[in-house]
Structure formats: structure tokens, C-alpha cells
């Protein structure tokens, strides 16, 4: 079952993907099929089964609070598409962006 168009639009917005009309139509179809396959897990009895978020049973991993050398400004900006005055430059930010 294809997922509905409103959901595709919402998810594309959340994911910051400017998809074409054709891509949106195809997504609705393909995602529907994949999710249908994923639906198989809905049949499993999972009550009381703890979720696994990590494949290792390690706990309390920390590093000592020690400062280390940073990159130079030049190194930090060396891959910047656009930079100005030691900063990364971006087009204007709209306020609802957050």
C-alpha cells in the first residue's frame, strides 16, 4: 500500500530533501512496499521485550576533561563551499527554520 502523499511531503520537508514531483510519486510507492514488508514484525509478540539500541553492553564511557589542539582556522574552513572573515557563509536564515 503506497504511503500517502501528505506523509511523503511532510517527511521530505523534515529530511530537507527537495524532491521532484516524479520522485515523490515513486517514493510513495516504494516506501509503501518496503514498509509492507516491515509490517511483518507487527505480528510478533513483543510485549515485555526490551529494545536493543546498542550492540555492546559497555557503560559509562568517558574521556578526561583535557583540552587538545584544535584545527587552525584555515584547516577548519579548507573545505567550506563559501567562507568570509573566518566564518562559514550561508544564505539568509528564515526565522521559522528551527
Amino acid at each position: 500500500m503506497p504511503i500517502d502523499r501528505a506523509a511523503v511531503d511532510h517527511v521530505a520537508r523534515l529530511a530537507r530533501l527537495d524532491l521532484s514531483e516524479q520522485e515523490r510519486r515513486r517514493m510513495s510507492d516504494e516506501l509503501g512496499k518496503i514498509l509492507e514488508h516491515a509490517e511483518r514484525i507487527q505480528a510478533l509478540a513483543l510485549d515485555g521485550v526490551e529494545p536493543t539500541s546498542h550492540a555492546v553492553a559497555i557503560r559509562n564511557v568517558m574521556r578526561p576533561d583535557e583540552a587538545r589542539p584544535s584545527l587552525t582556522q584555515e584547516e577548519a574552513l579548507s573545505n567550506a563551499p563559501v567562507a568570509e572573515g573566518g566564518r562559514f557563509s550561508v544564505p539568509r536564515i528564515l526565522e521559522e527554520e528551527e
Partner: peptide
């Protein structure tokens, strides 16, 4: 498209730029 890699030349604001870059 902010710190490294491709940046689309398209996009009047940063959100649009990001969405185009990723597309």
C-alpha cells in the same frame, strides 16, 4: 552544503539551499 562538500547554487534561503544541495 554548509561546511564541506557540495553546495547547490540554488536556494534563496538556507533551508532551500540545504534541500536543493541534498536533492
Amino acid at each position: 552544503g554548509v561546511r564541506y562538500g557540495l553546495r547547490s547554487s540554488d536556494g534563496s534561503d538556507v533551508g532551500a539551499m540545504m534541500a536543493r544541495t541534498r536533492a
